[in-house]
Write a protein that binds this DNA or RNA. Sequence first.
DNA 1: AGTGCGGCCTGTCCGC
DNA 2: TGCGGACAGGCCGCAC
Length: 271
Amino acid sequence: MPELPEVETTRRGIAPHLRERTIASVIVRNPRLRWPVPAELPEQFTGARINQVDRRGKYLLLRTDRGTLILHLGMSGSLRVALPQTLIRKHDHVDLVLDSQRILRLHDPRRFGCLLWTADDPLHHPLLAGLGPEPLTEQFHGQYLHDQSRGRQAPVKNFIMDSHVVVGVGNIYANEALHLAGIHPLRAAGRIALPRYHRLAEAIRTVLSEAILAGGTTLRDFTDSEGKPGYFRHHLRIYGREQLACLRCGGLIHHQVIGQRASYFCRVCQR
DNA sequence: AGTGCGGCCTGTCCGC
DNA sequence: TGCGGACAGGCCGCAC
């Protein structure tokens, strides 16, 4: 579910409640996430002080004096800051109870998310070590995409959704960015010239930045840390607009499954 | 090495 | 109204 803007929205929402707080207890109601929540995690982090809440790609990193909690929201995960009297809903799998009495509550119906921990530098963790650059930093630019894509036959849409190429570009924003850049999603990544990759990198940055400003996209069930939906869906220019007119050129928006994911594009202005 | 696919899960929606 | 099936925003791990 959540792409980078949703994870960043969540991070900004929870960070003020977590920073410089101590974890009073950890309650694991259901450890069966994508990978099991480690059995020792409650003991390891009870009494830990949270120093910083960071994000790497779509992973949230809760850095404490006892190690780092690594959290991924998968497709359907969300975090809320709850109070002791807040009712526990179905799929509320884990609580981090803070010394402030507030509770960081992980909710994840599909359980594609994960909650792991490491005592070492989390950026060296196997899940994070191979990730590509952050799209909103200066490490990410058209020249980089061009370099990485040489010799690649796969569609450019698959290429930019590969977290080892660049993190944080999920299905919705891949559709949006390609439309903004005027690039056909099925075009082989290795057969796009540098100027167009400059445009694509810029489009990715624009789309992600705008979505963060809007507080993320809610299609079905994304809510921020206060349980509120994001509003970026009102800004979507191509995603989900099958058979409607392209906002750039008026052409008919086409829907097609690419790499098992719903894709939307305009055959007139995306080449 | 790059590529494509299966699989993990539940909830929702659509057509019958 | 009920039911089966398709589909959904991610991403690892595997076979080729």
